[in-house]
């Protein structure tokens, strides 16, 4: 039985500033930028180049976190309820400290004003990571009519495929109008006219393959925010590479907790042991059943 559906599909991309990419890499073409950041070693090398020119690679050391955590080879918790920190997460931890020490990024939360302030035209950050909803929901500063830089952005896959969030339409138990609920849900995922409007007017990536394919193949379709790039075509391609098998119910809180506790280590206010000890305390408070080292 279907209890809820999402009207969005949320493969996420690396969203980069065209002008900064031109300055750092000599190109803002998505294919060429993708070639320059296609794996983490290359990404880190570009970060060094960007820093040499006075830019930030990312606006928060946690910006890349989701790309790593979506590609873990094992879930947060093993069969015996022991906490395990995947190799990919550990790679992020090393990268975060490294970026922070070398000034490639800022030590702040991805939702903080400090992070989003870099989206203004005056901002120095080259890359953000996010799906289609990120443009409207989180990049208000970039879309600002006066101080923003709409059109100076583009997307490419980035080092690894990932996804992020999405809004769900859920039917509440005991609803008095189930047929209407079903109708609303159906409209948002199956009505091609409505789904097309979502793509055209709201710059979303719809949850309808036919509609997405239609826009992906349309040579005249482009997202003005991304300088006319056909983002739907990119997202269709990326959606196929997403890995889901290691998702758990613990993900959101443990991801947030690791980021915020590790940030203190990146800032240098605590030692590595203290940061991990604080993270384990956080885990014990949120999930008493998980066994921490």
């Amino acid at each position: 039985m279907v209890k809820g559906v999402s009207f969005q599909c949320c493969p996420a991309a690396m969203i980069y500033r065209r002008s900064i990419a031109k300055d750092v890499l000599g190109t803002d073409d998505p294919a060429q930028v993708q070639a320059a950041v296609s794996d983490w070693d290359k990404f880190n090398a570009v970060a060094e180049q960007a820093a040499a020119k006075g830019y930030l690679m990312t606006a928060s050391e946690a910006a890349t976190y989701r790309v790593f955590s979506n590609n873990v080879s094992a879930p947060w918790v093993d069969g015996n309820n022991n906490l395990q920190i995947d190799e990919n997460i550990q790679t992020w931890m090393k990268q975060a400290k490294d970026f922070s020490d070398k000034g490639y990024t800022q030590d702040c939360d991805i939702w903080s004003d400090e992070c989003t302030a870099q989206m203004f035209a005056s901002g120095k950050a080259m890359c953000y990571f996010g799906p289609a909803w990120y443009f409207n929901f989180s990049m208000g500063n970039a879309q600002d009519a006066e101080k923003g830089c709409s059109g100076d952005w583009a997307i490419c896959q980035g080092p690894q495929a990932h996804f992020w969030g999405g809004t769900w339409l859920l039917a509440a138990a005991g609803s008095d109008n189930p047929t209407m609920l079903a109708d609303v849900m159906n409209t948002f995922i199956n009505d091609e006219e409505v789904c097309s409007l979502l793509v055209e007017k709201e710059a979303q990536f719809s949850n309808n393959k036919a509609v997405n394919a239609k826009f992906a193949e349309d040579p005249n379709f482009g997202n003005d925010f991304l300088g006319g790039q056909n983002d739907t075509a990119m997202f269709v391609e990326m959606a196929g590479n997403i890995k889901f098998e290691n998702q758990t119910i613990y993900d959101q809180l443990l991801n947030e907790g690791l980021q915020s506790n590790w940030r203190e280590y990146c800032k240098g206010t605590v030692s590595e042991e203290e940061a991990m000890s604080n993270f384990y305390k956080y885990v014990n408070e949120k999930y008493p059943s998980i066994v921490t080292p």
């Binding site: 809180l253 206010t269 605590v270 604080n278 956080y282 949120k286 999930y287 008493p288």
Partner: peptide, 30 residues
């Protein structure tokens, strides 16, 4: 401090500690 009691939990108060347990896990025992 966004509930974290930064830096290194030095501004975590007793009630914030209580809230850490109650907030998401509803751990009435602890």
């Amino acid at each position: 401090t966004n509930g974290l009691g930064t830096p290194n939990r030095t501004s975590t108060t007793l009630i914030m500690y209580l809230n850490n347990y109650l907030g998401t896990s509803k751990n009435y025992g602890m």
